[in-house]
């Protein structure tokens, strides 16, 4: 199922260029195929920056939870958010599941 693969498969970036906006922490990904720019918010930017060709969606969710100690963020909720976000990036063609 797509949901399982999105969390279990290693993720890789297909888009070659991303603009990291220092002042706001946002990332703007350039989708060369579609000739468009996709703006990611801070959480989306964090996910994007953690995609390295080896980490899975589940790995990334765990790293995000580890970065927020004491914030009371539930791993399952973060996994759900990451899964939905990664699915969106896959649909836009800027990330692929390996």
């Amino acid at each position: 199922m797509t949901t399982d693969r999105t969390l279990e498969a290693p993720l890789a970036r297909r888009a070659k260029l991303a603009h990291e906006v220092d002042e706001t922490g946002e990332v703007v990904v350039f989708d060369e195929t579609g000739n468009r720019l996709l703006m990611l918010n801070q959480v989306g930017a964090a996910v994007w920056l953690l995609i390295d060709g080896q980490r899975t969606g589940r790995d990334i969710a765990a790293l995000i939870v580890d970065a927020l100690p004491g914030a009371g963020v539930e791993l399952r909720r973060v996994e759900g958010d990451v899964q939905a976000f990664v699915a969106s990036l896959v649909e836009h063609g800027v990330v692929e599941l390996r």
Binding site: L17, A18, H19, E20, V21, D22, E23, T24, V27
Partner: peptide, 10 residues
């Protein structure tokens, strides 16, 4: 562009 232009905006 071949590199990030993110430093130009904010």
């Amino acid at each position: 562009p071949s590199l990030s232009l993110g430093t130009f905006v904010g």
